[in-house]
Amino acid sequence: MIVRFIDWLKQWPRTVRVLSLVAAAAIVIWSLAAVDTHHAHTWVEQHIPGFWAIFGFLAASVLIFIAGWLGKCGIQTREDYYDR
């Protein structure tokens, strides 16, 4: 069942992609419209619309870039490093 479901999804990659983006947009819009931010903890939450969406995107990207940068700095090395 699961296999069939995934295979079915894979037949329509473009549709899936679009639907996903639509869903993301819908979440942001719903947040802007329906959520009362007056009791939020911080200024940024109250005054920046869609703050958490921006935050999520940036956080993920920054983490990926930091990791990549660190990896290039020499943290990542060949697998037999300890066996020599």
């Binding site: 993301a24 942001v28 947040s31 329906a34 869609g50 969406a53 921006i54 999520g56 993920a60």
Partner: peptide, 15 residues
């Protein structure tokens, strides 16, 4: 809920 869904959705986007 809104906060969590936003973060998750846009993390997925970043991914």
């Amino acid at each position: 809920m809104a906060e969590t869904l936003q973060i998750l959705a846009f993390t997925a986007l970043a991914f």
